[in-house]
Simulated scan of single mutants.
Amino acid sequence: MLELRDVTFAYNRNQPPAVANVSLTIRRGEFVAIAGRNGSGKTTITKLMMSLLKPTHGQIFRDDEDTKSCTPADMARYIGYVFQNPDRQIFRDTVRQEISYGPEMLGFSSEKISEVTEQAMKLTGVADLADRYPRTLTRSQKQRVAIASALSMTPDFLILDEPTSGQDADTHERFMALLKDFHSSGKTIILVTHDMDCLVRYAERVIVMDKGIKLFDGSVTDCFADRRRLHEAGLREPATVSVSNGLAPQGISLTTDVASLAEQILAKRGGLNG
Rank of each mutant, 00 (worst) to 15 (best):
V200N: 12
V82L: 10
H183R: 10
P155F: 14
E3T: 02
A35G: 05
E173F: 15
Y101A: 03
L178P: 07
D217L: 05
Q89C: 05
T164A: 15
L53N: 06
A203P: 00
I26C: 07
K142T: 07
G125C: 06
F83L: 04
P238E: 01
E173N: 13
P163H: 14
A225Y: 06
A267I: 06
R62I: 09
G218C: 05
Q84L: 14
D197A: 08
S219N: 12
T154E: 15
S184K: 14
G41L: 06
A73S: 07
R229I: 12
A177G: 13
N245Y: 08
G218H: 00
G58I: 00
P134K: 01
G246M: 11
D181I: 09
I99M: 01
G36S: 13
R269I: 11
N21Q: 08
T221R: 05
V19N: 04
R132K: 05
G41V: 05
A120M: 00
I265L: 12
I26R: 02
E65N: 06
V220T: 03
T221N: 00
D226Q: 07
A203H: 04
L4C: 03
H194K: 03
R92I: 12
A262S: 11
A20F: 15
G246A: 12
L24V: 04
R132V: 02
A130T: 01
S140G: 12
H194A: 11
K42C: 01
V82N: 01
R174Y: 15
L48A: 09
A148Q: 06
N14T: 08
K42Q: 03
E118L: 07
S69A: 06
L4V: 05
F108E: 01
T46I: 15
I189V: 14
L235R: 08
A225L: 04
L261S: 09
F216Q: 03
H183C: 11
S260N: 14
G107N: 00
D74V: 14
L254N: 07
I147F: 08
R92Q: 05
M153G: 14
R236V: 12
E98H: 05
R37F: 03
V22P: 01
Y101R: 02
I113V: 15
G29W: 10
F108S: 06
K54E: 00
L52E: 02
L2P: 06
P155Y: 06
G186Q: 08
I213N: 12
K47H: 07
D131F: 10
P163V: 15
T240F: 00
G246K: 08
A20R: 03
D74M: 07
T136H: 11
A10T: 10
I190K: 05
D128R: 04
V208N: 02
G58E: 03
Y101W: 12
S51I: 05
Y78Q: 09
G234M: 04
Q97K: 15
H183N: 14
R269N: 12
G80K: 10
A177L: 15
Y81G: 13
T71L: 09
C198M: 10
T56E: 02
R37C: 04
A18D: 00
E98A: 04
M105T: 15
T255L: 03
